[in-house]
Amino acid sequence: MARGSGSRVPRSRWIAPVLAFGILVTAAHVWLNTNVLASKDVCGGLVSTAAAEAVFPATGRISDRAGPDYRPGDALGFKCTVWSSSVLPGSADEHLLIWGSRERGDFAFTGGRWRSPATVSFFSGGVTGAVGDGQGWILLPASCTRSLPAIIEGHAPERSDPVALARLLTDVANRAAVRAGCAGDRPMAAPRTLSATPTQRAVADGTLCGVSGLVFPGADGGNGKARETAQEHTGPTWACEVEGHATYAVTQEPQILAAIAASPGYAEQPRPAGRRVSGFDTRHVVTDCAGTPTYFSMELGRSYTSALGTPGTPPPDELFRSFIDLVGKRYGCSAGTP
């Protein structure tokens, strides 16, 4: 008589439930944590699920939950939040805000909700835009301008891949332009690589933002403790932020210059250092540099404005004149061009 034969359970009776449970767990994982069988697009077809998934630092299921919020009367005015959700232990929902709006042409250099231009990577050629620390924007073609230039803006988790964010925003911009009937002759092409954003450093003796002789935007002697973030001069756009004091920017990027000129309020301004300029005010202007329109902007910080009136603190017009004269030389500007 076989030992224990009366208590043995047939293999088929326990294998089937285990297999069924495994299939159920796998199916739940695929459905809850991945985008297998998910929609290819979200936000009303403006956002590719695959492109959005590439932006998030961790994998998750992509959705738009409530969907896009459109601005009446403007096909390029919308907001949509893209979510990445997962039920894996230790995971948390993350979101990406995609925003279509209209802005003054020099929006990227005027502060507000925009990161300092010294801390982002600008790109142009196939598409005009910038990305840095989880925020980016794309300028739509001039044919999309209506009262103001149109942009696509993105706010992502700070650990996001900047190249993936630039690729996503370019794709959204192409789709939005087609939907609005203002796309160019060919789709905009996202950059394959981005320039490295600079790191903060101490202001060196005798130079500011790497420019010899540039007037310090603060009280006399304050440059000894100041720190700056300055981009390398390798493209059509350059910027430098002197922490708490001032942010300087200059660009010859054609699409940005066209957007600036197409914005309301753009007009001739008083001449700094004898130059003929147009712009929005005396510190956001465009002048001619060796036949090329060149934009200069200077934003002042609290450390500078609180020092105004104290001995050794230069006035704003002196700062701006020093900026245009010295940085302008890099862009072919001659001093005091009438």
Rank of each mutant, 00 (worst) to 15 (best):
F323V: 14
T292L: 00
E318I: 13
M298I: 10
P264Q: 10
G309K: 11
I324R: 06
G265C: 06
S263Q: 00
F296K: 09
D281E: 01
E268W: 08
T292A: 03
P264T: 13
E268I: 13
D325Y: 10
R275H: 15
T310E: 10
V277A: 08
A261I: 12
D288M: 07
D281I: 01
Y295L: 03
D325P: 10
A258W: 08
G328Y: 12
L257H: 02
G312T: 10
M298P: 01
R271N: 15
R321M: 00
I260T: 02
T287Q: 02
D317R: 11
E318Y: 08
L300P: 13
S263H: 02
F320Q: 09
R330H: 14
V285R: 03
I324L: 11
R330S: 14
A273C: 13
L300K: 08
T305M: 05
Y331A: 10
L257M: 07
T305H: 01
G312E: 08
V286K: 08
Y331I: 09
A273K: 02
R302C: 12
G328M: 12
P316H: 05
G328P: 12
A259N: 02
A261H: 04
A259H: 13
G291Y: 11
P254W: 02
I260V: 11
P293K: 04
F296V: 09
T292F: 08
Y295V: 05
G274C: 03
S278W: 09
A307Q: 09
G312Q: 05
Y331H: 14
L319T: 01
P254V: 04
I324K: 01
P311G: 08
P264L: 07
C333R: 03
E299P: 05
T313H: 12
S306W: 10
C289T: 06
D288H: 05
A258H: 02
E268N: 08
V277I: 12
E299I: 05
Y266N: 11
I256E: 09
S306K: 13
I260H: 02
G328V: 15
S297A: 13
D288G: 05
V277E: 03
L300I: 07
R276D: 15
D288V: 05
G301Q: 14
P311S: 06
A290Q: 11
S303Q: 07
T292I: 06
C289E: 09
T310H: 08
P315C: 07
A273V: 15
R275A: 14
C289Q: 12
G332M: 02
F320T: 07
G301Y: 08
I256Q: 01
S334I: 13
Y304T: 15
T292E: 08
L308Q: 15
Y304I: 11
E318W: 00
P316T: 12
E318R: 14
P316W: 00
S322K: 01
A307H: 09
T294V: 07
G309W: 07
K329R: 14
G328L: 12
V285M: 08
Y331D: 11
P264Y: 02
H284V: 03
G279C: 01
P311K: 00
L308P: 03
Y266K: 01
A259G: 10
P264R: 10
P315M: 07
P293Y: 04
P311M: 05
S303A: 15
I256F: 01
T305E: 05
A262S: 15
K329H: 15
A290S: 15
S306V: 14
H284M: 02
S278G: 13
D317C: 09
A267G: 10
S278Y: 05
I260P: 07
V285Y: 08
I324F: 04
I260W: 00
